[in-house]
Amino acid sequence: MSGQKKEFPITWGMVIDIDKCTGCGACMASCQTENNVEPQREASNKLRATSWMLVYELTNDKAFPNHDIAYLPRPCQQCGNPPCVSVCPVIATDKNENGGIVSQVYPRCIGCRYCVAACPYHVRYFGWYDPIWPEGMDKTLSPMTSVRPRGVVEKCTFCHHRWTQAKDAARVAGKDPENLDDGAYVTSCVQNCPSGALAFGDIKNPKHKVHELVKSPYAFRLLERLGTETQVYYISRREWVRKLGDNYLKSE
C-alpha cells in the first residue's frame, strides 16, 4: 500500500444523516436504474446480488424495550487512500482525477477480484451473471452508464456521469466547470431521497453545504482507523450509532 492520501482541489463528498434515514430503499432503486444494474431475479441471494448502494440495518444489540435500530446507506466510500487501487494488477481502478472519485473501467477489468477482497466496505461487486433485462426493458437503459458484461467488477461511481454533465452545463452557461454551484452536481440517490437524508457537494468548497456538515461533532466516517480517509461522512446524534462506525475495544 502506498499509504498516501491523495489530495485534489475538489473533493466530492457525501454526508448521510443516519437519523433521517427510514430505510425505505429509494436510494437503492434510484441507483439501480440510473446505473443500469439489471433487475435480479434471485436478489435475495446477497452473495450474488449487485447493489452499488446498499442500506444496512444497524442495531444497538440490546433487548426489547431498549433496542434501537438505524439504517445506514452505503455507497462507495471513495477513499482518499483506496485499498482497492493499489491491488489492481491492470489499473482498471484508479484514483487519479480531480474530485477524488475512484474510477472503475469495466473493459479493462480482468475480474481477478483482488479489489473486492481489499475493500473494507464491501462496495465492490463482481458480476456473476450476464445482465439480462426482461424483454423490451433494455429500451429503458440509461445512456449515461455503460452496461457491464459478467466477469468484471463494478461499484458506485458517485454518478460520475452527472458530474461531466454538470460541467458541460456550466461550460455552456459560461460558468467555471471547476467551481460548480452547490447542488449543480448531486448523485441520483441524493436527488431522489424522500427524507432528504443525503447531502452531496465539494467538501473543500466553503460555498457547499457539506463543507460545514463534515465538521459536525456528530459526523464520523466508517473504519476511520484504517486510514482510508473516505469521502463519505455519516452523521448521527446517537452515540451507539457513531460507535458502530469503527471497531472499538470495550475499554474505549
Partner: peptide
Amino acid sequence: PCQDLTMVPD
C-alpha cells in the same frame, strides 16, 4: 416492482 427485489433484505 422488478428492480425492487434487490432492496428486500435477506
